[in-house]
Design a protein around this nucleic acid. Structure first.
Length: 439
RNA sequence: GCGGUCAUAGCUCAGUUGGUUAGAGCACAAGAUUGUGAAUCUUGGGGUCGCGGGUUCGAGUCCCGUUGGCCGCCCCA
């Protein structure tokens, strides 16, 4: 046993694990670019106050925070939202709208480890600033869905639950509840799925038992699973705010349907997301089997940029965590068998042949091909075995017979065929075989 | 922060009521094998049995503590 262990909850990525992680990041990055999002990055270490300002003092117990040598209170970032709000807020007047940004970054939270949760993890974050209409949600929800679909996940595997905090407040207001009571009811709604009726205990403690008919109406609202049902309920109540909100819902779902994504989106007002800073649509992605914690979550936070010292700027964003997502891919057998294999493996006779081979090896490597060879002289049989195990597509055979003829034998390790090419043509020959197969 | 459970080789594990020098498979390395692919055979390197203390003539085994993993609760930005 080594004397030094990694810290609890921290992960080490051996090459095969890193290859899988890189694959996730590569696909996310490519997808975000396809949606016109630009990548940014920012410091891992931030002033502690940035998180206090957003989430309150109690957040500190869940942070990796300390005092640096300059006496500053600092914390490893537990999320990207405050940081990106600051970045955008500082340059808001000069950035072209809409501002569509994404990042792939590592985060740290001082928490107890659990399935799908550790003390360090990565998130894909995407945010859209400067658009207050549901067009912003359309882009983000579509991006979220595509970020999962790109791995082969389908509507059989996951879905996005869509809810709306504004709608809840307008609804509860229409039912005659004031703001404080409405917030308490929303807190109960947030916990209702897990606790059932007990979720309303906190409300009862604060304001007395919730009127039975009101509670029925709240629970009925939770039952709504379609736009049609939502429309029926809202039109019955009437009122301008609800009508305007309904129009937003229609637009958002209409656009997502036009994109062919309707089957991925479920109207579900049970999603509230406890965070106080969400101001409109909120959404979370779950696996259909319901075995895992949320895969992704996000929503609109129109007040946060201003709260963190920037100008008033509407915003919508979401994040996908890598741990639960990797579990889902694994469960569905969609983790690609990625090996960091060379493209070409050289089989080399002896020291004399090695000199000739080295010249070609370097030429091929300089041209960008992944080329490997045995560091020390080995029997041919072992070299062919090593070539096969390396995962290379091609073996180049530098034997005395070939070099005497001025050729190199190219063996296709998959097809188990081989042919000779003049040494001078080796780069072109390799390129011809491998081009089009590389990603 | 709380509870349950586990810890023996790189991996999966065996190890009897406490008893000689702690084992197997896989993996890794060398050889059989100096020109063609996951085979076979032989051999080898690898362990302070998580760590610390206790009981005992004797502890991988029993007891206590501790660290760490896994699972759940709280929380989940």
């Amino acid at each position: 046993m080594p004397s030094f262990q990694s810290l609890p909850g921290f992960r080490e990525f051996y090459p095969d694990a890193l290859a899988r992680r890189n694959h996730l990041f590569r696909v996310w990055r490519q997808t975000a670019r396809a949606f016109g999002f630009q990548e940014y990055d920012a410091p891992v270490l931030e002033p502690l106050d940035l998180y206090r300002a957003k989430s309150g003092d109690e957040i500190e117990t869940q942070l990796f925070s300390f005092i640096d040598k300059g006496g500053r209170e600092v914390a490893l970032r537990p999320e990207m939202t405050p940081t990106v709000c600051r970045l955008v807020g500082e340059k808001a007047s000069t950035l072209k709208r809409p501002i569509k940004w994404f990042s792939i970054a590592e985060f740290f939270r001082y928490e107890r480890m659990q399935k799908g949760r550790g003390r360090c993890f990565h998130q894909f974050n995407a945010d859209l600033f400067g658009e207050s209409g549901p067009e912003a949600e359309t882009e983000l929800i579509a991006l979220l869905i595509q970020c999962l679909r790109a791995f082969g996940l389908t509507e059989q595997d996951f879905f996005v639950r869509l809810s709306d905090r504004n709608l809840w407040f307008y609804y509860l207001e229409a039912l005659g509840l004031d703001k404080l009571r409405a917030q308490a009811v929303l807190g109960a709604v947030d916990k209702f799925e897990k606790l059932g009726d007990d979720a309303f205990k906190t409300y009862a403690g604060q304001f007395g038992p919730l009127d039975a008919s009101l509670k029925d109406k709240v629970l009925a609202f939770l039952e709504i699973k379609s736009l049609a049902a939502l429309e029926a309920t809202l039109t019955a109540l009437g009122g301008e705010k609800l009508a305007a909100r309904l129009a937003d819902w229609k637009k958002l779902l209409g656009h997502l349907t036009a994109m062919g994504l309707a089957d991925y989106v479920q109207v579900d007002l049970g999603v509230v997301r406890g965070l106080a800073y969400y101001t409109g649509f909120v959404f979370e992605a779950f696996d259909r089997k319901g075995e895992l914690r949320a895969i992704a979550g996000g929503g609109r936070y129109d007040d946060l940029v201003e709260k963190l010292g920037g100008p008033a700027l509407p915003a919508v964003g979401f994040a996908i965590g890598d741990m639960t997502f990797a579990l889902l891919l694994e469960q569905r057998g969609l983790t690609p068998a990625l090996v960091s294999a060379p493209e070409v493996y050289c089989v080399i006779g002896g020291e004399a042949e090695r000199r000739a081979a080295f010249s070609d090896i370097h030429t091929l490597r300089a041209a960008g091909f992944a080329v490997d060879y045995p560091l020390k002289e080995l029997a041919f049989g072992k070299q062919f075995k090593a070539a096969a195990e390396s995962g290379a597509r091609l073996a180049l055979i530098y034997g005395g017979d070939e070099l005497a003829k001025g050729v190199v034998k190219i063996r296709d390790l998959t097809a188990r065929t081989e042919h000779e090419v003049p040494r001078a043509d080796i780069l072109a020959a390799v390129r011809d075989t491998l081009t089009g197969e590389r990603t």
